[in-house]
Nucleic acid binder design. Structure first.
Lengths: 107, 107
DNA sequence: GCTTGATACCTCGTGATACGATGTATTCCA
DNA sequence: TGGAATACATCGTATCACGAGGTATCAAGC
């Protein structure tokens, strides 16, 4: 997929991945894989950004001797997803502008 | 609109703006305004990028003592729009992942 | 015991890019 | 005479995705 198209989608994908249930980095990547691929370096950048924007909170848990950091979405995070849905309406008008063969008559 | 969401859309918008008819910078901005806003500095960056990617060609025309640079889409530019339509299918599956309230049952 | 691969975290540097600020020059209208 | 509008352009900055690399644990196979 075109790289630039992913921007603006990634943040909201990560938030959606922890919406129903708290999750951790490695699992988020796996869960998102069928929809969108992102590297670990990308994810941890996003996670840090979302945390400093207070859209999620973090909690460390020891699991099988390994550290796991569970991420929990906040109200602001949920609102971020709602805002995205609003923005999407504008995106769709842009999409229609780009894809209609003839800009005045037939669709 | 969220800034990041525009990325990946802008290039293709500019190409769509010159698809039916050659156009020039100032007019492209005006034509796109109802759909997406972009500043002059952004547009000229994009135009230069698309030119070096050979997705459009340029032709200078004197108009009322002012210079006008008309942009003409190439086959590669048209193909770029087609590729975008393909990418959009993937984008829609991502969108659906983000927006469905419950990730297993009801839509 | 040793290696390999999966799990799980992290940092650093780079390249792409949208845009504000700024500059130049002309035409048109009040 | 002055300020929109038209029309082009450059520079610097901030944001961001990602590859490359690093640390550490655990399970499985030889």
């Amino acid at each position: 997929m075109d790289n630039q198209l992913k921007r603006g989608l990634l943040d909201v994908c990560v938030l959606a991945a922890i919406l129903d249930e708290d999750s951790y980095g490695y699992k988020i990547i796996k869960d998102l894989k069928p929809y969108i691929e992102l590297s670990e370096s990308t994810l941890y950048t996003i996670l840090k950004r979302l945390e400093s924007a207070q859209m999620l909170t973090v909690r460390s848990v020891e699991h099988d001797g390994r550290l796991r950091k569970y991420y929990h979405i906040t109200d602001a995070g949920v609102r971020r997803i709602e805002d995205f849905k609003e923005d999407w309406k504008e995106i769709m008008t842009v999409y229609q502008f780009v894809t209609k063969e003839d800009h005045q008559n037939h669709e």
